[in-house]
């Protein structure tokens, strides 16, 4: 299991959302800082209500909760794919509210990586081409792109499968490809939506190991999950319920009621 290279101070197992923000005020600028965030889908769906927390570089954070608790909406906002209805979201110290879509796209391109439950690889591109594709979007091409692609593919252990197409890969291999693609641009924030949800237990464990090994002082990993064992492996856990951040739990602990249901396995 990867360790937190950021060296964050030990925290009490359960702290309030408000106090977590206050605690980090003394430290470095958080990569993610949300305060009083709400998201409403017309006409009356309140997906998020008054959510506040911070994530520092070097942290691995799990967002847990039942289906419909607002986890994915929160991840979309953190990934700058959606904008909050109210509240503030500072990404790397920049208030994202009111930023033109061009700037938001640039943040996504340069600083954020995504990993999806269904892998979402481009089916007609090989493992190597999928990684190169992501680099291409980021404006990295030619020999530099080839070198980075080879390095990231090796990082996820797919050197032998570099020229295979997604449909010929196992679920674990596809997710490794997705991870290689996500980290190709060295993002500061790696957002993972149920990354082990489609995998068997053993493969899920290896993928989780791989993901957590990506945590470094220059980035943070956020994992949305139903799986309590995945959540327990992260340094922090944000528990969501009906769009409200009910708890923030720090440190490895598997005995906490995280509000997830049995379907999450």
């Amino acid at each position: 299991m990867a360790t937190n290279e950021a060296g964050a101070a030990p925290e009490s197992p359960v702290v309030s959302a408000r106090s977590a923000v206050a605690e980090n005020e003394a430290g470095a600028v958080p990569i993610v800082a949300v305060e009083a965030l709400t998201k409403t889908f017309p006409p009356t769906t309140h997906a998020l209500t008054d959510v506040s927390f911070e994530i520092l570089l070097g942290q691995s954070v799990a967002i847990i909760g039942k289906s419909g608790s607002g986890k994915s909406t929160l991840l979309s906002i953190l990934g700058l794919l959606e904008t909050p209805t109210s509240g503030t979201y500072r990404f790397a110290g920049t208030d994202t509210q009111g930023l033109p879509s061009r700037r938001l796209t640039a943040f996504r391109r340069d600083s954020i990586g995504y990993i999806f439950q269904a892998y979402n690889l481009v089916e007609y591109l090989t493992v190597r081409e999928n990684v190169l594709h992501a680099l291409d979007i980021k404006g990295i091409r030619g020999e530099q792109a080839e070198r980075i692609a080879e390095e990231k593919i090796a990082r996820v252990g797919l050197e032998e499968r570099r020229d295979a197409y997604p449909q010929t890969l196992s679920g674990g291999e596809q997710q490794r490809t997705a991870i290689a693609r996500a980290i190709a641009g060295a993002p500061q924030l790696l957002l993972c939506n149920e990354p082990t949800g489609n995998l068997d237990e053993r493969t899920a464990a290896s993928i989780l190991d791989l993901l957590l090994s990506m945590v470094s002082p220059t980035n943070a990993v956020v994992i949305v999950t139903h799986d309590s064992s995945v959540a327990a492996a992260c340094q922090r856990r944000l528990v969501m319920s009906d769009g409200v951040l009910t708890e923030q739990i720090s440190g490895s602990d598997s005995g906490i009621d995280d509000g997830t249901d049995e379907e999450s396995a």
Binding site: G79, L81, S101, R102, T105, A106, R108, R109, D110, I112, Y114, N120, V122, H133, A134, I137, K138, R181, G185
Partner: peptide, 14 residues
Amino acid sequence: RKEIGIDMALGLDG
């Protein structure tokens, strides 16, 4: 749609 969404999530503009 999925492919387009991925591209946009990766930073491609509309």
